[in-house]
């Protein structure tokens, strides 16, 4: 797929992965399924405060958020909050995305081996290792949640700072204003810690512990490089964070629908980032394997 010299150049590696996606669009098929159910969930949440779905969702929204959130424009806050909630997106990622990412990696492996791409075979391959894929996807999610909890301790500490000027005030502002950006970094960092687990499970048919061992073996030599390769595509998410974290500035000028649009754009970008992440790192994994 690429030369060895290219393998340690982040931009070149990402470019190679993207060109692979263009030459072999079959890799995108599993991600099309991911996009489909994400859109479907978004659609259901969008209609949740309206008849007939309100008969089911109404009591839940009323209990968790309050009566006002069943009505326009506040329903958009619930749509954005629920759709982007860590709980919902984590469950989707672990239960469903893990499987489809596995399928896409099986397709990349087939292309790399010069074999014809048979979707059914790729699905079979992922299905055979589903339990391991499930755990492999749960690990970065659990790590991210754990790190977020630690981050929350820092935020809580910053919140009790009462200074309105000086170094402590600057520190407080830095901590509070960087929350969404730091969360993005934590997500990338957690992904980086386990990024070679799913390729190991699918390509080398390893079980979870074997995949974890080979994951850390690769990371031991190239964690910085891996993190950099994962950070670069994740940067495309920054405009969404910027717009979401500054809604208080333009909320009177912008329609409430913007919240919903930002939520769906955010999820589309997450899928794009996942595509680039897993295609790039699978390419790297295969190159490392070939080097051996």
């Amino acid at each position: 797929m690429s030369s060895e010299s290219k393998s340690k150049q982040p931009i070149a590696l990402i470019k190679t992965a993207i060109s692979t996606l263009f030459t072999h669009p079959q890799i995108l098929s599993p991600y099309a399924i991911i996009a489909f159910y994400e859109f479907l969930i978004f659609e259901l949440l969008f209609f949740a405060p309206r008849y007939p779905l309100v008969t089911f969702f109404g009591p839940i929204i009323r209990k968790l958020e309050g009566e006002v959130f069943l009505h326009y424009p506040f329903s958009y806050y619930v749509l954005a909050k629920w759709f982007q909630s860590t709980l919902l997106q984590s469950v989707i990622f672990v239960v469903l995305n893990s499987f489809f990412i596995g399928v896409s990696i099986a397709i990349i492996n087939a292309i790399n081996n010069g074999q014809p791409v048979i979707l059914k075979a790729a699905f079979k391959r992922a299905a055979a290792s589903y339990v391991h894929l499930f755990i492999g996807a749960a690990l970065p999610v659990a790590t991210m949640i754990g790190l977020s909890q630690l981050h929350e301790l820092v935020i809580n500490r910053a919140l009790v700072i009462r200074s309105t000027s000086g170094i402590y005030y600057i520190l407080k502002q830095m901590v509070l204003l960087s929350v969404p950006y730091f969360n993005l970094f934590l997500a990338v960092f957690s992904t980086a810690l386990f990024i070679y687990v799913i390729p190991g499970i699918i390509i080398d048919k390893k079980k979870i512990f074997g995949a974890l061992a080979s994951n850390f073996k690769i990371l031991w030599k190239s964690f910085g490089f891996t993190l950099l390769v994962l950070i670069l595509p994740a940067l495309i998410y920054l405009p969404v964070i910027l717009l979401q974290s500054t809604t208080s500035i333009y909320k009177d000028a912008a329609p409430p629908e913007l919240l919903g649009i930002l939520a769906i754009v955010g999820v589309i970008l997450s899928i794009v980032i996942d595509i680039i992440h897993y295609t790039t790192m699978t390419t790297y994994y295969l190159l490392k394997k070939e080097e051996k």
Binding site: P25, S29, A32, A35, F36
Partner: peptide
């Protein structure tokens, strides 16, 4: 894949 996307 196009067919699948159209169905979706």
């Amino acid at each position: 894949m196009k067919k699948t996307i159209i169905i979706f």
